[in-house]
Design a protein around this nucleic acid. Sequence first.
DNA 1: ATGTCTTTGTGAACGCGTGCACAAAGATGG
DNA 2: CCATCTTTGTGCACGCGTTCACAAAGACAT
Lengths: 261, 261
Amino acid sequence: MATGRTHRPATRSRGIPEATVARLPLYLRALTALSERSVPTVSSEELAAAAGVNSAKLRKDFSYLGSYGTRGVGYDVEYLVYQISRELGLTQDWPVVIVGIGNLGAALANYGGFASRGFRVAALIDADPALTGKPVAGIPVRHSDDLEQAVRDNGVSIGVIATPAGAAQQVCDRLVAAGVTSILNFAPTVLNVPDGVDVRKVDLSIELQILAFHEQRKAGEEAAADTALPAAAAAAVREQSADQVSADQGPDGDVPAVMPA
Amino acid sequence: MATGRTHRPATRSRGIPEATVARLPLYLRALTALSERSVPTVSSEELAAAAGVNSAKLRKDFSYLGSYGTRGVGYDVEYLVYQISRELGLTQDWPVVIVGIGNLGAALANYGGFASRGFRVAALIDADPALTGKPVAGIPVRHSDDLEQAVRDNGVSIGVIATPAGAAQQVCDRLVAAGVTSILNFAPTVLNVPDGVDVRKVDLSIELQILAFHEQRKAGEEAAADTALPAAAAAAVREQSADQVSADQGPDGDVPAVMPA
DNA sequence: ATGTCTTTGTGAACGCGTGCACAAAGATGG
DNA sequence: CCATCTTTGTGCACGCGTTCACAAAGACAT
């Protein structure tokens, strides 16, 4: 989900399809669970069920990494965990900086999944001077002025933006200028970044709207009638409802934002 | 991102492609911003730039909704806001229940974007008796025992799961049994749901891992050398690194979880 | 009215991702 | 050592989504 200005050709780095990369963490999670139960091997069928995917798809995904299975037996769990971890770059340490320590930012800082798998919260940044120095999840919050310093000192290449939408682009620019090349964006805005910088978007509002769409479809097919409402009626309803919509809209574009695409 | 057991054929309800539905909220956000600035019309080119997509794609997306543009002029902003809102089902009220009021659940409850666009937090649920009755974002937390009651009384059809992974499936089952047919899942688990129930997954850990993958690619192509490491060396490194990986893994599968797929 | 200019709406081609179905590979038992 | 059985790895076809490129439609000026 790179949202850059220029079109990025679905980064198939070294031949591994983007869709496959997106599923590797899923496999890894399932494999880790098996590993903890000391299960030595799994078949593609079993693992696929655990990961919630098709077994043929899983086998094809693994085939991009190499031939790590044994026919008639399945895959060695420990070995596969290692291979996928290495492929995802999880065998190294990834210092991360979180900008915007509001409700969401604090939740992220406290997120346990952060610490595991090689991700380490190197710094917390917030523009509010009242927060400066206060520890969140055991890490003292630093002021925005220290952003560049924090990024450079820790060799941070991954930044998380959890600020209000209005500040997101500016924060993004500063992160990128300081050397960050991957951004996880929770602010409800489209970020413009130069080539070579990856952006992934997480937007709760969008997720809910998509669910609402399907919910509406499920709830009433009888509403399909006024979908094809005549032009005259549509024009009539236009002003009335447009006002109504924007009226109770609230400050949507300014909330801290929450989720993925 | 329906993660059900059975394969769901990419729900193209009434002919609107899933990919288009996922972009509609993006357009809506851009249009709302224009509306607030009292801009009367936009061309597909301008709007596409604001939403960060290709203009041809945007036009095709809109063509699925109908012919709402005027050639030589563009699209009427207010009218389009209304049409998209209606298509997404945002003209009606959507009561939502949030289960699991930890760091993340609380952040979600406080999320401003919730209130706008027709989403209303109808109830907060948590298993911890210590939280029961305490207000979060102005809404008193109710105990898990009240889950079914809360869903039924409010006519909730959308549920948000922000519990630890271990509790997610059980909570999911109860939500579904109580009548919920759309679920936004923040727990790092694959949820099994019956047909007709939509699940969207939001998983911070996965997003970070995907970023790490690309980051690794960017950082070193010289590491490509040991990618094709000989079988012997691979086998040797196997145990060592496998142990290492699972050792500093931490309780990953149990954290409250955070994001999308 | 007529011509020009802008912008939409869409036909068609292309590429990626998915899933089927099967051959090859290896384990296992006799 | 051979036969059988299991499970991987993949060739192939299909369908969705994206993009190009252009004809049709309307605005606007003369």
